[in-house]
Design a protein around this nucleic acid. Structure first.
Ligand SMILES: [Mn+2]
Ligand SMILES: [Mn+2]
Ligand SMILES: [Zn+2]
Ligand SMILES: [Zn+2]
Lengths: 126, 126
DNA sequence: CAAATAAACGCAACTAAGTTGCACTTACAA
DNA sequence: TTGTAAGTGCAACTTAGTTGCGTTTATTTG
């Protein structure tokens, strides 16, 4: 059984993501931590936190991966079907925690994951 | 007024996209055309076709851009709010032309574009 | 507390997608 | 037919993400 260890870098990065209202990219985390650890280490920490179910990935509209903290309600059962919003002005990517999309697609499709992202102007930039 | 010219490469690539049931990436188009033109040229052709409103972009779940033909109904007014399906087995990305998602998000958000992609198993792979 | 060990890390090298600059070629309008 | 701006090829570059490997360190166990 491969155990997962706690390290300073991991805790710091988890705290940053959990305390952020917007999803963060590896580059943003690296800038925010300024030499705390190597960039490769950040990628590996993000993988671990994702595996542990503490954060979830969101692909931004520019193709760059961002990471957001899992909500409290997520602890019971992970479900990340909420819509995300990508602001074209401030470039922020936000989890719209409560907002889910409904759709009806032809059967024969088996859905395993949903990736819904709207882009436009966020409230802060209006 | 900058005009847009027709070239062999452009026509060939447009035909490939228009005749495909799935969205295609630059790499896939390059493989399908085998030395028709440089890879940079493919990127530039894709940009032009997009600008002309003949194709539209779809970001795949792996962060790679794919391109799909615009539907006939699209000629009246472009609107690409339909859902896309990304198959985890055959890696295909399909426009679900008729299928749109409905959602209700907090006002104060101004939506300009929608990017809805479901992933799972497509009918061909079931 | 000390030693063992597997997880975590740093660094260098690599891949893959996409972009840019510039000289050369070609579609097409005049 | 010819001038010219649009299109192309090639080399170089950027940025995100991955991999291999030798070294460090958190945690377990005696
Ligand atoms: Mn979660
Ligand atoms: Mn269209
Ligand atoms: Zn989210
Ligand atoms: Zn589409």
């Amino acid at each position: 059984m491969k155990s997962i260890r706690n390290t300073v870098a991991k805790n710091e990065i988890h705290k940053l993501i959990a305390g952020s209202t917007v999803a963060l990219s590896q580059a943003e985390l690296q800038a925010a931590t300024k030499g705390l650890c190597d960039r490769v280490t950040i990628y590996r920490i993000l993988d671990r936190l994702t595996q542990e179910g503490l954060i979830h990935k969101v692909l931004n509209v520019d193709g760059v991966m961002k990471y957001a903290g899992c909500a409290d309600t997520c602890k019971a059962q992970h479900k990340h079907d909420h819509i995300h919003f990508s602001c074209q002005k401030c470039k922020s990517l936000t989890c719209l925690a409560g907002v889910e999309a409904s759709y009806r697609l032809p059967a024969a499709y088996t859905v395993m994951e949903a990736n819904f992202t709207l882009s436009g102007i966020c409230p802060n930039c209006t």
